[in-house]
């Protein structure tokens, strides 16, 4: 289960095998949605997805060998980025729509019923278009998602909210191995070396947008929590509180 020295093809197989399922919302509210019904559906979905995200993280090679403290730090730091990259990947073939669940597909105009949400929807749709334009491959997606989890909390400054990792070297080794797998996959595309380097950069530059959207989304979710009109589930609340926004 050690990741150091794992061949790139095996890393790709393990990452693809770790993918969580696409969920169903089930408790669907009737249209037109209101701020309360929309946020109730989205936060309920996020809470359910978080449970699957934790199971996914535990399948990443090397993750369960990290200390519990480091596992918590990485997940608390990156959870909304991981949810967002998954949402964009699911939505890649549906321009103008975000596929939150098999039975919960929303377009931009529907997001306007929640104050401040259209701005975040627009950013998610724009970044999804970028994924589409780049013709992001499943192998590249699974690498990027794992990189998001390992990168976001790894080199964070020590602030009042985020503590340093116990073993940042172990996280760096995982990150390097997954980066190698991504580079290896791109190298098999038949492109020139320059085109390969460019694609590596193009894909990794997407992560800056994902971090930005997560920060915006976290602020938005915090504002929803403060309004106290939508009850948030335990796990989602814990993950939000880890960011202790002001």
């Amino acid at each position: 289960s050690s990741i150091a020295g794992m061949p790139p093809d095996q890393v790709l197989l393990v990452l693809q095998g770790a993918e969580p399922p696409i969920l169903c919302a089930r408790q669907k509210m009737s249209r037109p949605y209101t701020e309360v019904t929309m946020m109730a559906m989205l936060t309920s979905m996020a809470d359910k997805e978080l449970v699957h995200m934790i199971a996914w993280a535990k399948k990443l090679p090397g993750f369960v060998q990290l200390s519990l403290h480091d596992q918590v730090q990485l997940l608390e730091s990156a959870w909304l980025e991981v949810l967002m990259i998954g949402l964009m990947w699911r939505s890649i073939h549906c321009p103008g729509k975000l596929i939150f669940a098999q039975d919960l597909i929303l377009d931009r105009d529907e997001s306007t019923c929640v104050e401040g949400m259209a701005e975040i929807f627009d950013m998610l749709l724009a970044t999804t278009s970028r994924f589409r334009l780049l013709k992001l491959k499943p192998e590249e997606f699974v690498c990027l998602k794992a990189i998001v989890l390992l990168n976001s909390g790894a080199f964070a400054f020590c602030t009042s909210t985020m503590e340093p990792l116990h073993d940042s070297t172990a996280v760096q080794i995982m990150l390097d191995t997954i980066t190698d797998a991504l580079v290896h996959y791109i190298s098999q595309s038949g492109c020139t070396v320059q085109q390969q380097s460019r694609r590596q950069a193009q894909l990794l530059l997407l992560l800056t947008h994902i971090r930005h959207m997560s920060n915006k989304g976290m602020e938005h979710l915090y504002s929803i929590k403060c309004k106290n009109t939508v009850p948030l589930y335990d796990l989602l609340l814990e993950m939000l509180d880890a960011h202790r926004l002001h």
Binding site: V51, I54, A55, L68, V72, L235, E238
Partner: peptide, 13 residues
Amino acid sequence: HTKLLQLLTTKPE
């Protein structure tokens, strides 16, 4: 982070 710890420490089925 009680729930998170609980999910991290339970064995997969």
